[in-house]
Every structure is written in C-alpha cells, then in structure tokens.
Amino acid sequence: MDLGQLLHSLFFDYTVRTVALGTAILGIVSGMLGAFAMLRRQSLLGDAISHAALPGVVLAFMITGLKAPLVLMTGAAVAGVAGVILVIGVSRHTRLKQDAALGIVLAVFFGFGLMLLTFLQQNPDARQAGLNHFLFGQAATLMERDVLVMALFGGAALAVLGLFWKEFKLLSFDREFGATLGFPMSWLEMLLTFLLVIAIVIGLQAVGVVLMSAMIVAPAAAARQWTDRLGLMVGLSGFFGAVAGVTGTAISTLAGGLSTGPVIVLCISAIALISLLFAPRRGVLWTEIRRRRQHAELAMVLKGGRP
C-alpha cells in the first residue's frame, strides 16, 4: 500500500477510518489530560493507572462474560481508581515514598492481571480471545462500537475539563491560593485524577496497558516546550497526541500487523524529541545558541568593544 492509497483509505475505507478516528480520539483526550498530569508532577501516576487497569479488564470479562467496550472500560476504570487510591493512601499514611507506592501498585496489579489472563487462557472457551490485545494494543481491532464508547467517555471527560477549567488551572499552579479562596481543592484533585483514569482507559485497547503511560507524558512534554500558556499547551498536547495516534496506526498498518502500541509510542516520542531539541526559546538548540551569543557579547565587552 503506498501513501496515496493510504490517504485514500484513511478517508474512504470504513475500517481504516474507524481505527484512525479511534486513535485520534485517544490521542486528543490523553494529550489534553496528560498536560495537567505533567504540570502536577503526576506523570508516572499514569503508568501505575494503566498497568493497574489490566486486572480490571480481565475481571470485568470474567464476571460478565461480555467483551462489550463499555463493560471492559468500566472494569478498567474501577481497577485504575483502586490503584490510584492505593498509591495515594500508601504514600500518605506510611513512610514509604510515592515512587515505591507507584512501583508496588503498578507491578502487583499487572502481575495479578497476567495471572488472571493466563488462568482464562487455559480453558478452550474462545470468547476470551483478544483480551491479550490489551497488553500491547491492537488498533486494528477497534470497531465502531469501541470508537463510540471512546468518544462518549472522552467527550464527557473533556466537557468536565472545560467546565472546571479555571479551577483546574488554579489547582495546577497555586493549590494553596485556591484553598484560601475557598475552592474544595481535594475534591477538584480527585476529579482531575479521575479524568486522567478515563483518558487512560479509553486508550488501552489501541495502545495497551504497558505503554499507555507514554501517551500521558510525551504529548504534554512536547507541548510544554512550545508555549507558556496553559490553554495553548493543552490544545497542542491534544493535537500532538492525535497526530501520533493516527500516524502510528497508519505505519503499523503499512508494516503489516505490528502491535500498534509501540509504534504510536515511537511517533509521540519523536515529536517530543523534536520539541525538546528545536522548540523556539526553550529548546536545547535555542538555549545553546543563546549561550554562545551571550559568551560572544561578554567577550566583546571585556575586550572594550561595544556589543
């Protein structure tokens, strides 16, 4: 399939269009909410949430026997929330640091999920087939109903984000000031973390639990380099996420059936790398040029010349 054909099928082929739409949605939602996670230094919480979601997916299937996206995503969200509560509870009520709490929740939930998954795989019942796509993601398995649920969840999350925009901004930049103004900061914190869980959950089928955290961190890290304005940063972050999602899916389709998760992650990592190196004013290249110029100017001044 060449590029022309790919573009053609992107717009006119039903399956490809569905998949592209799905990955775009996941990119937008995880990018926009990831921006807040990064500002609040919760980048790695995304890693814990996405791994923690695995047993939720498997248990939801075991209990209901259904693979409907709504069921699996609800299971994933419940497990993700449980993981967050454990991380916060352990790091707040014991002397363990947050990174230990993250590591424990991430690895133990994931191990539990794998155990359940292998437990299911031993019986010949074919209905469980496809659950292991949740490990590394398989965007090609996205169907219209999946994309519909993703759009619904993602849209709702973004609507809430828009509704509480000012409050979340306050929370991210000056929590104490917000508290003195009388805003219920802990509630807002919980709400924002819950939105993050939703952003992760809707991406699991396409990107997988192992790598979904990159979709939270990388678009935000990239967007941060281009602007100092929150609105612009969140928008850019969503845009980068969507571009990576669609491009990654296209590449993995062209390459013939690679798991989409790793490919999408490489796309968003490339965007992040370019941003870190070349973004105007903040980027590494820019900083280096400015440093050189300052050196040269200083040398001029020291020699008695005028800059």
């Binding site: 980048s43 995304g46 961190v217 890290a221 690679l258 490489l266 990592s269």
Partner: peptide, 23 residues
C-alpha cells in the same frame, strides 16, 4: 536540561526504548 521534571523524564525515556525493543 530543565525542560522536564524527573518523573516526566523517566516517563519519556523508557517507553521509547522499550517500544524499539518490542518492535
């Protein structure tokens, strides 16, 4: 580089390297 904090730095590096390995 002070462009990102430590947690984001970890979150950027290892998924990228791991993805290369998986591919």
């Amino acid at each position: 580089t002070r462009l990102v904090k430590q947690d984001a730095a970890i979150g950027l590096v290892f998924p990228a390297l791991f993805s290369v390995a998986v591919i």
